[in-house]
Amino acid sequence: MTGNLPFVVCMVFVALGLWTLLAKRNLIKLVIGLTLIENGVNLFLVALGYVQGGAVPIYTYAPPGVRMVLPTPQALTLTSIVIGLATTALALAFVVVIWRHRGTLDARKVRELRG
């Protein structure tokens, strides 16, 4: 059970992010909810690649005979973090423009498009 604990924590992150998106009204809090989901998924990826007692996956630094943690999930996480940065920045930029036009950050009031 303890072996699966990191994965449970990651899923708690994802669930918290979804809950933020569903329950919060402030547009910036919605963006925070997105980053919570993203962090949960990123942690999940890193946790997947962990090997008990493994060394840093840099070939020249690892002492001989020691197992390394998996390098691929870390590369994936790095890519995912960069993508997350771009989406967060773009979403926040949209929030700024919405605030300038409408003067509010309440998602319940920013709904000219409906029906």
């Binding site: 979804l18 919605l30 498009l113 029906g115």
Partner: peptide, 17 residues
């Protein structure tokens, strides 16, 4: 049907869930 398209982001996410 139109009442479902409320324009509120949380509703969009809820339907996605």
């Amino acid at each position: 049907l139109r009442a479902f398209h409320s324009g509120f982001v949380a509703d969009y996410v809820a339907w996605f869930v």
